[in-house]
C-alpha cells in the first residue's frame, strides 16, 4: 500500500513539473514592445570567476552592458563550465533558437558546432574563438588574441627588472595562448639582454594549483627573482611570489594586481569590449559576421595594465611604452 502511495506521489510531482513547464512556455518570452533589449548569450568552457580566459569575456560583456544602460538595453545569458562539447553545442543551438541576436561560443573547441549550427540560423550572429576560421559563413565571427605581443612587452620589463638574471615561467600545457604568450615573453627578454636565462616549467594541467605553486617555489629556490605564467592555476605562483616577498610577477589574460599589490608589475589584459561593441554595431547595420578579429595592442584589444601600486622605474616604463609603440607601428614583429 505504502509503495503504491509513493508511486502516486511521484507521478503527481512529475506531472506538476511538466504542467508548470507548459505554463511557463506559453508565457511571452520577450517584454513589452516599447524597447526590446539587445540579447547576447555566451557559452564558456570554464567558470566566470576563473581569473583568466572566461572571466575576461564575462567582464567585457558586463562592462558593455553597463555602458549601454544595464539590463534594459542589453540582456546577457551565460552557460559556464561547458567543457563538454556536446553540451556546449546544445547550449549554442538553444540560445540561437531562443532568438538571441549574438551567440558567443567562447572556446576553440566549439568550432565544429558553430559551423553546423550557424547554417541553420542565418539571422543570428555567431562568434567563436580563439581561432581565425569563419568557415566562409556570413554570420560567423572568429576571434583570437595575439598574446605574444603583450608577452613581449612583459618580457622587456622583466629583463630590465631582474637582478639575478634568472626568470621563471610557470605554465600549464604548452598549447594555445599559454604557449604564444610565453614565446613572446622570451623574445622580449632576449631583445633586452640575451644573457638572461628564462627557465620554463609546465605542470601538465590547467587546474593543478598545488603543483603550480611548488613550481614557482622551485624557480625561486633556483634563484629566479621574476616570474610569469598563464592559466587559472597561476594564482598559486602569485601566492608563492608573495610568500617569498621579493619576487616580481607579470600577469596575463586578466589584471592580476589584486592578488599581490606590491609584487605584480603589470598584466596583459584581454579586452573584448571593442569586439563586442563592433559586433553589436554591425548587427544593427545588418552585417552579421564573416570577419576574423584579432585582439592586438594596435586595436586596444590587448592592453598592458601597469599596477599603480608598484613603483616602476621610469626607464623601464619608457622601454615598455616604446615596445608597445613599436609593436603597434610594426617596427617590431613578434612571432608566436
Amino acid at each position: 500500500m505504502r509503495i503504491r502511495a509513493l508511486f502516486i506521489v511521484s507521478l503527481i510531482v512529475v506531472m506538476l513539473a511538466t504542467a508548470c513547464g507548459g505554463g511557463q512556455q506559453t508565457a511571452p518570452a520577450g517584454g513589452g514592445e516599447a524597447a526590446k533589449p539587445f540579447r547576447i548569450a555566451v557559452v564558456m568552457p570554464s567558470a566566470t570567476t576563473d581569473m583568466a580566459f572566461s572571466q575576461s569575456m564575462w567582464s567585457a560583456l558586463k562592462a558593455v552592458q553597463a555602458e549601454m544602460g544595464g539590463e534594459a538595453a542589453l540582456e546577457i545569458k551565460y552557460s559556464e563550465n561547458m567543457f563538454k562539447v556536446p553540451d556546449a553545442a546544445a547550449a549554442i543551438r538553444d540560445y540561437a533558437s531562443q532568438g538571441f541576436n549574438i551567440v558567443i561560443a567562447h572556446g576553440s573547441q566549439y568550432g565544429a558546432s558553430v559551423e553546423e549550427i550557424a547554417k541553420d540560423f542565418p539571422n543570428t550572429t555567431f562568434a567563436w574563438g580563439t581561432d581565425v576560421n569563419t568557415f566562409g559563413l556570413p554570420n560567423v565571427y572568429a576571434y583570437t588574441a595575439a598574446a605574444e605581443q603583450g608577452g613581449y612587452v612583459n618580457g622587456v620589463m622583466a629583463a630590465m627588472l631582474t637582478k639575478s638574471k634568472l626568470i621563471g615561467v610557470t605554465g600549464p600545457i604548452e598549447v594555445g595562448d599559454a604557449k604564444t604568450y610565453i614565446d613572446g615573453f622570451v623574445q622580449g627578454v632576449a631583445a633586452v639582454d640575451p644573457s638572461i636565462t628564462v627557465s620554463k616549467t609546465w605542470t601538465g594541467s590547467f587546474s593543478d594549483v598545488a603543483l603550480m605553486t611548488e613550481a614557482a617555489k622551485t624557480h625561486i629556490a633556483a634563484g629566479a627573482d621574476v616570474l610569469t605564467g598563464s592559466s587559472q592555476s597561476v594564482v598559486g605562483s602569485i601566492g608563492a611570489a608573495k610568500e617569498a616577498g621579493n619576487v616580481l610577477w607579470f600577469g596575463t589574460q586578466q589584471d592580476q594586481a589584486s592578488l599581490a599589490p606590491e609584487l605584480v608589475v603589470a598584466s596583459q589584459v584581454y579586452d573584448w569590449t571593442a569586439l563586442i561593441k563592433q559586433m553589436i554595431a554591425n548587427y544593427k547595420e545588418g552585417k552579421l559576421g564573416g570577419i576574423t578579429y584579432v585582439l592586438e595592442l594596435k586595436n586596444d584589444g590587448l592592453k598592458i595594465a601597469f599596477n599603480p601600486g608598484f613603483a616602476l622605474p621610469d626607464n623601464v616604463k619608457a622601454a615598455a611604452e616604446k615596445a608597445i609603440a613599436d609593436i603597434k607601428s610594426g617596427a617590431i614583429t613578434v612571432n608566436p
Binding site: S108, Q109, T130, D131, V175, G176, T180, P336
Partner: peptide
C-alpha cells in the same frame, strides 16, 4: 593551428 600561430590543443 600551427600555421595560424594559435597552437590550439586539438
Amino acid at each position: 593551428g600551427i600555421a595560424a600561430g594559435t597552437y590550439l590543443a586539438q
